[in-house]
Design a protein around this nucleic acid. Structure first.
Lengths: 143, 143
DNA sequence: AACTATTAAATCGCTTGCTATTAAATAGTT
DNA sequence: AACTATTTAATAGCAAGCGATTTAATAGTT
């Protein structure tokens, strides 16, 4: 009866693309012992070591309910350390371990492979990325 | 040391946009007693009733490990019925119930709200959608 | 007919992500 | 100083999503 509305098709395009992205990343990251979410945390920490849980959450749009168990798994895997801040004991500071820091070199190959798998000119990816971030911010504004 | 690569930023843009989409859909769909994934199943069934689990899976890029428990929850909520096909007992045919079918009218309002929340010209959404589907297909091709 | 291969769905064990709530520490106020 | 409000993590309980495996039905082969 009703024609499927564009928003649904658009949102589904994002949904299904992310499923494919995850499937594409999985075998690459498995070799590093990382999931995609954990990889995102590593990217953040490689850029700036020593961040609190909520600072990581702001960058990744996740909250402690998601991050705490995820970070504990990463701690168990000796990728990071978690320590209460002495200045403010409410904060937990997350820091890379030696091996977590070293993993950075192997990660470069993952990025290259993904660029290859996406098979899309960099310029276009740039444009898409900008548009997506705009949409993301629009949605967040209205929450 | 290494500069953060574009592909990661691009994939993260998709990832974080989907998080926002889910957060935006949640309160709207809650009123209909649906999650976003369940809503996608409903969209598929509203378009064509009576599909097997694997047919739904092909359309949504999901497999039975994800769909079976999801469909069971929808069955418990009396949105759908699941029945083994008599022609081939390996197939489970999923069909809308009366109330599942009727939910379609309320869903129209959800779509309108999402279009509003995205706050983006239709043309641009169209372009984005096409590009995303291309990328998705590229990734799937290389799996 | 019997045996093997394939197919469809379900199941197991795991990680992610969410809402709602709780616990503990700090900030702000009277 | 005592009391309240706010902030930060952590926790509980739930729904997805996935890889790997299992079960049952059908197809194909000898």
């Amino acid at each position: 009866m009703t024609t499927p509305k564009l928003s649904d098709q658009f949102c589904f395009a994002i949904y299904s693309t992310l499923l494919a992205i995850n499937k594409s990343y999985r075998p690459l990251l498995e070799k590093l012992g990382l999931t995609y979410s954990q990889y995102l945390v590593m990217l953040v920490l490689w850029e700036q070591n020593q961040l609190t849980v909520s600072e990581i959450g702001e960058k990744l749009f996740l909250d402690s309910a998601t991050l705490t168990p995820l970070l504990k798994r990463m701690e168990n895997a000796h990728l990071i350390e978690r320590n209460r801040s002495s200045k403010d004991e409410r904060h937990v500071v997350v820091a890379l371990t030696e091996s977590g820091s070293n993993l950075r070199h192997q990660a470069a190959r993952v990025m290259d492979t993904m660029v290859c798998n996406l098979d899309c000119p960099i310029d276009e990816l740039n444009v898409l990325q900008t548009r997506l971030m705009q949409l993301r911010n629009n949605l967040i504004k209205r929450l």
